[in-house]
Structure formats: C-alpha cells, structure tokens
C-alpha cells in the first residue's frame, strides 16, 4: 500500500494556522523580553545582593531548572486557582514561560557577568566611574555581548517549548495543528506543515537576534 500525501485539506484550514503562528509569535516575544529582564536582574542579584536575597534567587533558579515545564504550567493554570489566583490560559502561559525563561537566563547572564576580568572592573573605578556605571558599561555590556549566542539559543528553545501551551487550550500553532488533525485525520501532513512553520519561526527569530546583535554590539 502506498501513502499519498494530501495537503489540500490541511491548507484549507490556513486561517487556523495563521492564527496559531501569530499567537506563538506574540506569546514568545513577550516571554523573551520579560524573561530576559528577569534574567539580568536576578543575575545581578545573585552576584551582588546580600546573602538572603542571593539564596532566594538561587532557590528560584534551581526549582525552575529542575522541574518539568509542563508541571510548572499546570501548577499555574490548575493549581493557583485553589489559592484564588485565576488566570486565563494565555496569561497563565505567559507567566509560566516568563518565570521559566527568567531562571535559565539568570544562569547564562550570571556566567557572563562573572567572566569579566577584575582588572577591567578596577580600570573602570580608577577612571572615576560609579558602581552602577561600572556595572552598565564595563560589566553588563561585554557580558551580554559574550553570552548573546547562548541567550539566543535559550530564547529559541523557549519559543519551541511554548507548543505545550496548547495543553491548557491556548490557541497557539500546535493547538491549530490538533484542531486540523481532528478534522482531517491527515496526521502526517498536519504535523509536517506545523513543523515547517516552527522551523520558519525559529529562523525568523535567529535573523532578528542577529540584527539585534549587530545593532547593539556590532563594530562600526
């Protein structure tokens, strides 16, 4: 028996796919921006803050990095309502993914911050810069430049992982795939098309990150 690929029915539902792509793009962008900010703040805190705060941040990072993302998502969406914290599906997804990405970004940014040689920090102080100025110009900026590829990888991993948001009925790209699959039973075609769309999204993000890198750190 030979299998004939049939994409017509899949593409007939292009509106679902488009809606899915838009949701995934939008969800990922918000999460990346806020997850990154959490990463920078917590990384700085994990190095420079007092002992209690350092331990709190350490606990957050380890708790998140050593539990499944799906469990975290279910805790926020199904668990927190028990404490009166009720979010709609998309908000729950944004919160979970942001907190998750923040923990991973914290570790990456921290490694970058700690890789700046003491001598350069000292040179900054010797030129009369204040502590915050040294942090911004002498430590953070080269650290982010150095860690940018690792951060970009993490961001794209996160974008791909947002597909599990479909489990709590967020109408993202993977959710669109499930709907089309249940209507057409063209499993192979549906998931092939969706896979290609995720690939395209990943490439779009890579190009965007390359541009941001050039703008922020490129040599002029």
């Amino acid at each position: 028996m030979t299998y004939t690929l049939q994409f017509r029915d899949v593409f007939a539902s292009w509106e679902y796919l488009l809606q899915g792509v838009v949701t995934t793009l939008y969800l990922s962008s918000i999460v990346i921006i806020f997850g990154f900010l959490i990463g920078v703040i917590c990384a700085a805190g994990r190095i420079y803050a007092n002992r209690v705060l350092r331990m709190v941040i350490g606990g957050y990072v380890e708790a998140i990095r050593n539990t499944p993302l799906l469990v975290q998502l279910f805790i926020v969406f199904f668990g927190l309502p028990g404490f009166g914290l009720r979010f709609d599906a998309t908000t729950a997804a944004v919160i979970t993914f942001t907190v998750n990405l923040g923990a991973y970004s914290t570790e990456i940014v921290r490694a970058g911050l700690q890789s700046i040689p003491r001598a350069q920090i000292e040179a900054g102080f010797a030129l009369g810069l204040s502590g915050p100025q040294v942090f911004r110009y002498v430590i953070l900026s080269p650290a982010l430049k150095m860690m940018f590829p690792a951060l970009a990888s993490q961001f794209i991993l996160l974008m791909l992982a947002t597909s599990i948001a479909s489990q709590i009925s967020v109408n993202d790209l993977f959710h669109a795939a499930s709907i089309i699959q249940s209507r057409t039973f063209r499993d192979f075609e549906v998931y092939l098309v969706v896979g290609v769309l995720y690939l395209a999204l990943a490439l779009i993000f890579r190009v965007a990150f390359a541009l941001i890198y050039k703008l922020a750190f490129g040599r002029r």
Binding site: P117, E122, A123, P142, K145, R219
Partner: peptide, 14 residues
C-alpha cells in the same frame, strides 16, 4: 590617572 601593567582596555569598545 592610573595605568596598569595589563593595559586593561575595555575589549568591547573602540
């Protein structure tokens, strides 16, 4: 002003 043995220029800046 102080100048160090290891130069200590900021490598990411022109």
């Amino acid at each position: 002003g102080i100048v160090f043995q290891g130069f200590n220029l900021f490598p990411h800046l022109s």
